[in-house]
Design a binder for these strands. Structure first.
Lengths: 244, 244
DNA sequence: CGAACGCTTGAGAGGCATCAAGAAACGTGG
DNA sequence: CCACGTTTCTTGATGCCTCTCAAGCGTTCG
């Protein structure tokens, strides 16, 4: 078997054919390394490449004129970075390494043949974008009408769910390498409010921290309270094109 | 020529072939009519169909347990409704008619052949989802860190930009059939705050109202102030698969 | 060992939600 | 075409939540 992260993630959803595996593995031939805080692609730069995340986290963010930063998306191993910028010649967001990072770049022109020859993979990619959109709606709901505590709690539940797909969350523990400032940028809160929310969740016995690891004590209870639904566990593939 | 709304919208971005036009027109064979406030598809219902919007507006929204409603997406003539629910067997959002409405439903299984035979159309659909994602990030930015006045102003600019693509905004005027309550649901504000924001924009000479029509007096100036960028005007098609 | 960086906590200010009530517009049926 | 009820818009008063500013502490890394 291949040790491709992308294959690992996709296999969670459908049984990949050997042809598909080979083709996907080819996207991960080159590898680039980045250190935490490195900028992978700056806002306004040309979006000629797509990246597969091999190890580490990175995030896409936009800075507005008052200097406030908003994290638009966070990527984990197995994710495809840059699909959301396909329609733009220059990037609308800045990609920054959240941890030390290994990325596999491939030119976005490689998608041409995939679109023609691998309609089922395209359908799966398409499905992913809809999952991400649903998650983004959850974020909108959180930012618009939930308390700071609930925003942060929901963010942790979402993160854990995403990591679980590729087996990066073991049991109730998962890594949380983002600083409280970055968490704030992700959920639209100030550092101070994030800190107070975390301490409150901790005091209530919902979470526990141990270095950069986080434990959600009773995921089901917290999830029910915050109306969290794991959008990433399963996709409906009934409309996927059949294999030839 | 066909009078398909979908073809009209897509033609804004690429030159469709005759084959593509015929195929798209076939999606609009059936037509259903709804009155304002009618529910087109309820949350939790099966997502077996996709719809092309022929005339009117509709919106997808989610209601949480405290009864607060969030509008996740708004659809205009020429839009495809339901693509964002493709990956789910049952709908995560509720679709409601914002005005009287004419929709053309087609089964989502019809996508199978499109995925196989029309990779260029699929690429274009894919591009649309990335545009919508970018717009959603703008909304996140607005909800998270902008004032009520700016949220509402940005919402108007975005709406006008979307309508302009299909020629539904003439000059600086465009229709705004949504009540202030619905606008509030869309941008995450209370009705009261929306009203105050509108009156402020009006007092500042940024907008003018005439029944259900809205005029943005100096779009460039307001756009620059709110850091608005029209994401829907143009797509990069360099990575699209070529025609056979 | 010193200097960033990240976490924690307090105090004060401001903006938006909420509650409430009246005015205007709309729609519907007599 | 008018009368009435409903929806929508408008405005004021009050309170709460989060932001901002500020300072101290702990930790990590060069």
């Amino acid at each position: 078997m291949t040790n491709s992260c992308l294959v690992a993630k996709l296999s969670h959803y459908i049984n990949l054919t050997a042809t598909e595996c080979v083709l996907l593995a080819r996207l991960e031939e080159a590898t680039e390394h980045y250190s935490r805080r490195d900028i992978v692609l700056d806002q306004g730069a040309e979006t000629s490449d797509i990246y597969v995340v091999k190890t580490g986290w990175l995030y896409g963010h936009v800075r507005n004129s008052d200097g406030v930063d908003l994290i638009a998306e966070i990527f984990y191993p197995g994710d495809l970075v840059g699909l959301s910028q396909l329609a733009f010649e220059t990037s609308t967001v800045c990609y920054t390494a959240a941890t030390d990072l290994a990325l596999c770049p491939f030119p976005k022109n490689s998608l041409k043949t995939i679109f023609i020859e691998q309609p089922r993979l395209v359908a799966l990619f398409f499905a992913f974008t809809t999952l991400e959109r649903a998650t983004m709606i959850d974020r909108l709901r959180a930012m618009g009408q939930m308390s700071a505590r609930d925003c942060v709690g929901l963010f942790f539940l979402q993160t854990k769910a995403r990591l679980s797909i590729t087996g990066l969350a073991t049991g109730r523990w998962f890594p949380m390498p983002l600083s409280q400032e970055l968490i704030g940028n992700a959920v639209g809160l100030s550092t101070v409010s994030v800190n107070r929310a975390i301490r409150q969740l901790e005091a209530e016995g919902h979470i526990r921290r141990e270095g950069r690891m986080l434990e959600i004590m009773r995921p089901e209870i917290l999830g029910r309270e915050l109306e969290f639904f794991d959008r990433h566990y399963k996709v409906d593939s009934s409309w996927f094109p059949n294999l030839d």
